[in-house]
Design a protein around this nucleic acid. Sequence first.
DNA 1: ATTCCGGACTGAATCGTTTCACAATGTAAA
DNA 2: TTTACATTGTGAAACGATTCAGTCCGGAAT
Lengths: 335, 335
Amino acid sequence: MAISVKDVAVAAGVSVGTVSNVLNRPDKVSADTVARVQAAIADLGFVRNDAARQLRAGRSRSIGLVVLDVGNPFFTDVARGAENRAAESGLAVLLGNSDENVEREGTYLDLFEEQRVLGVLVTPVGDVADRLTRLRLRGTPTVLVDRQTDDLNFSSVAVDDVAGGRLAASHLIEGGRSRLAFVGGPASIRQVGDRLQGARAAVAEHPGVSLEVIDTESLSVLQGRVAGEGIRARPAAERPDAVFAANDLLAMGVLQALNMQGDVHVPRDVALIGYDDIAFASAAVVPLSSIRQPSVLIGYTALDLLLREADGGPGFAHEHIVFDPELVVRDSTRS
Amino acid sequence: MAISVKDVAVAAGVSVGTVSNVLNRPDKVSADTVARVQAAIADLGFVRNDAARQLRAGRSRSIGLVVLDVGNPFFTDVARGAENRAAESGLAVLLGNSDENVEREGTYLDLFEEQRVLGVLVTPVGDVADRLTRLRLRGTPTVLVDRQTDDLNFSSVAVDDVAGGRLAASHLIEGGRSRLAFVGGPASIRQVGDRLQGARAAVAEHPGVSLEVIDTESLSVLQGRVAGEGIRARPAAERPDAVFAANDLLAMGVLQALNMQGDVHVPRDVALIGYDDIAFASAAVVPLSSIRQPSVLIGYTALDLLLREADGGPGFAHEHIVFDPELVVRDSTRS
DNA sequence: ATTCCGGACTGAATCGTTTCACAATGTAAA
DNA sequence: TTTACATTGTGAAACGATTCAGTCCGGAAT
């Protein structure tokens, strides 16, 4: 049914080896043979079978990327950065969405390994060290994205989330707030823990400032709204006067819950800061202060590192690249 | 280097055929043989080589999805819907981002064809009928997403964008506005054209109402901002009193440009409505009225249709599924 | 005239899985 | 006892592109 190199070879009156050469090393073939073969290819509508090619080559020409949430613009930006770098080397990026779910994460890692991808970029949900170590030992290089790690066996590209958390909390405190709340979860996600840790550090330096933790099930707008409703339902005296949300999606949910009802007002009653500085943050009901991460650059750098690691072989020295976060002040923290 | 079925067979003391059976039809193999083989698999860390499997099978177990813009939450929702349906059948979705660029679209279609995907879901950039016809003839079924077509050779899943455009414009007119502007482009994207056409139809029914078209280069927040700046710079008398943006991203850009400077106010001076009703629309500076599309359902349905078409063979009767859009009124059109 | 060389091309072997016709064994029915 | 039949397992062929040792040939060097 399908057209193979063999059919092309017959049609062009050459051997299959020559067809392959035309495809991969046209300079090794005389000009008119190239022309004849290409004519045959066009005639028959031949399309290379990537599976056969991969089988022979032993490796595919794509990279797997597993993100926590495709619905989060931060991750689509990371993906965009990775895709840009991949395109430069003629590679494809396969995007998998774990939805903060360990099982789905595993499914994608399995799939990518069966596909013999060149390497894997992961923003891990939980503790996947074991999983990834096995992957690496079997020959699939791995780079952790948006996650610092002390594990010397992996390379990583991340933003200093502890510093980011500190930046956010300090900003709130400097704005005169003293009853802070951290909205985020689950704690198993490292980013969440790190940002909280940074906030705690900042709070610890300021006597009289308290920090309450409001746990969420995931990092979504919906969960933010739930947390926000909880805050709004409290008597004024027990409400925090500032909220640091673990990401912008949560922050926007909190904002919706608080501001749309009119009784509690951001920033008058509650100052609010998010994390990631997604494009929509500046367009929110109350433009949202946030901690900016260089998302596209993170993706680009991670893939670049992955490719270097894939070339370097197993003896490659793992690198840990850390970017600095940046405070972006908007109305939501201006009183 | 890599472990193959052969190695597993030797380790378990069985033939390769039996290993394959354990993998694919364990009920055809005695219980203790299954156990022995699985132990060997675990021992050796065997991972199926998908390329070889595909080569033999002739088709892969994944579906290609090409969207106009991964940065647009509408499309990530569509992707999510498709992924859900795919997961039900144990298939994977490969996501490609054309960024409204014909060339990139072509690159992804080529890639997917070389991968021998089960089928392709496309939100086409321009006129890709030729391209897709060839694909289909060579055996890769295709479903157009978010695009109605009169072409009887393709199935499609879409929303009635003409109706949506009419809905949006009618709403603005009923709110007392009479100098409408449509912000959107490029016109080569069918959604844009359809929505405009619907708006034109609504305007035509109301004497005294005018419709101006402000063209944009793409459907992004940035382009919306550019269009908004243009509107703001005009003398008040020449400004439209209502804007219908071809999607929410544009609308949010327009909103930023108009409202953040303070002199022109939405909705007082300019009413504004978008399209897609992305999650962020309700959280905008001024909560955005919009035309809602059932995005997740569109993706789910499209993939479902694709699978039916793939099963049905080339003789399958193409279907055209059209969903109805829904008006969502928020502050941006309330005067 | 002979040798040597390089360019152009050939075709069999290879990658790892699945499939399928077939063999071997045991068990029930005739 | 023979026949029939199911169960379990075997191993070679096939999928399609790439690679590589080797053939062929015309021309340059000796």
